[in-house]
Simulated assay, not measured.
Amino acid sequence: MQFSKKLVLSIGVIVSGLCTFSASAADIQAGKSKAVTCNACHGNNGISMLPMYPNLAGQKEQYLILQLKAFRDGERKNMLMSPMSTGLSDTDIANLSAYYASLDPAGK
């Protein structure tokens, strides 16, 4: 099967757009402000003091976006995270994800 250059280029542009989609327009400072509620379990700098809660510092931004949306939308259920995420907008999620992704996973 032979593909035309135009088709291959179009697919490349679409895939490139999907791969580079990020919350780069997200507001890290707004995420930090919103994260005050998250700090109780995930720590002030994204490093949890309790082993049952995951560290969020340095996590990949897109991973955090997908997980928060899954909790919010009921695709992923957790006794604590499901209710905590229900009021988050897509902008809130982008900002929180950008904030946690910007943190040093070593806690420095």
Rank of each mutant, 00 (worst) to 15 (best):
M84R: 11
H42W: 08
D27L: 06
T20M: 11
Q59A: 13
L68P: 07
P105K: 14
R72N: 09
S16F: 13
N44Y: 04
G43Y: 06
D73W: 06
Y63A: 09
S16M: 10
G31R: 14
K69L: 13
K6M: 00
I28P: 08
L18Y: 10
Q2Y: 07
I65G: 06
S33D: 06
T91C: 03
Q29F: 07
I47K: 13
V8K: 02
A101E: 08
A26W: 01
N44C: 02
D73Y: 08
N78A: 14
N78Q: 13
G17V: 04
L66I: 12
G87I: 10
K32W: 02
S4W: 01
N95H: 08
G46Y: 05
L50I: 09
M84H: 14
S48R: 02
L7P: 02
A30K: 15
L96V: 04
V13F: 08
S16R: 00
S82K: 01
V15P: 07
G12P: 03
K108R: 11
L18W: 08
I93T: 07
A35L: 03
L9G: 00
N39P: 01
L64K: 06
G74H: 10
N44I: 05
I47D: 05
D27P: 10
S33P: 00
N55M: 00
L103W: 02
S10K: 02
S10P: 00
E61A: 13
S85P: 06
K5Y: 02
N55K: 01
M84G: 01
P83W: 13
N39R: 15
L56K: 04
I47C: 08
S16V: 02
S24M: 03
N44S: 12
